[in-house]
């Protein structure tokens, strides 16, 4: 619980004891995010990834203040809502890559079909082998696709959307680093393969990393990420049928 002395004289002090103003957490999240971005610009390491750093700092603070997720999300839900408009925004890069889509569409279809099948199949098989609960298993299925799609997918098949989103984020963070290592090991000649590796395996975070490898890799990764997300949303009702 926050102490009253900390709040004395601030606009926050008028609230019932032990409760933060809902916008407090929005301000904290925004502030930590800007801080994390600044740190990442100076020291680009995997552990300074803005998302990881924001999460770690925010989580530490929330734990220290004994805040529940319910309290936290009250003031920050609007940020999650912005994922909707962000999904709409994906139309622009897709439109701008239309020439590349026309040239390479058969390969893109192969990449997305192979990637989606392996992603869902491996999540299911590994989670079952390790004896995870059905709700966890379902929340792990969409972890390779971008968050807005993953949340839609989890809602559809009966997973826990927030948990699915968390798995997506962890996948992105680990995947971007794993991708770097894999590029050194795999004999990949085409920029298509390098881009697809990042876009399919580590969605948004991977796409950002692929942009550093090369411009073509970056746009392929972004395209594969969006198309894989769309595919998973479209096949979610089918998978939901099998899960029942």
């Amino acid at each position: 619980m926050p102490t009253d002395s900390l709040l004395a004289g601030t606009p926050l002090s008028g609230l019932p004891h032990g409760e933060w103003h809902p916008l407090f957490w929005a301000a904290v999240t925004l502030g930590l995010y800007l801080f994390a971005r600044a740190v990442h610009q100076r020291h680009a390491r995997w552990w300074t990834s803005p998302l990881l750093l924001t999460w770690a700092l925010c989580f530490g603070l929330a734990e220290a203040l004994h805040t529940t997720y319910g309290d936290y999300i009250k003031g920050t839900h609007w940020l999650l809502t912005l994922l909707g408009p962000a999904t709409v925004a994906f139309a622009t890069p897709i439109y701008e890559q239309r020439a590349m889509i026309r040239r390479h569409w058969p390969i893109l279809v192969v990449a997305i079909m192979a990637g989606t099948a392996i992603a869902i199949g491996s999540s299911w098989a590994l989670a079952s082998a390790l004896g995870l609960s059905p709700a966890l298993r379902l929340s792990l299925l969409p972890r390779s696709v971008s968050t807005p799609f993953a949340i839609a997918f989890a809602e559809n098949v009966g997973g826990i959307p927030e948990l699915a989103a968390t798995c997506v984020v962890i996948t992105g963070l680990l995947g971007a680093s794993l991708g770097d290592v894999l590029l050194k090991w795999l004999p990949l000649r085409s920029s298509l393969a390098r881009g697809a590796l990042f876009g399919m395996g580590a969605h948004g975070v991977g796409t950002a990393r692929a942009r550093l490898v090369g411009a073509e890799e970056g746009s392929i990764a972004g395209l594969v990420m969006v198309l894989a997300g769309l595919t998973s949303v479209l096949i979610a009702p089918v998978i939901a049928l099998f899960m029942r």
């Binding site: 924001t54 999460w55 925010c58 997720y69 994922l83 962000a86 925004a89 968050t147 959307p161």
Partner: peptide, 21 residues
């Protein structure tokens, strides 16, 4: 679009806090 996509990481930061529960 570029603005929204650049800050997408921020938009999904709140979801990761679900670990609190």
């Amino acid at each position: 679009s570029a603005g929204l996509l650049d800050h997408m990481l921020l938009f999904f930061a709140p979801a990761t806090m679900a670990l609190l529960d």
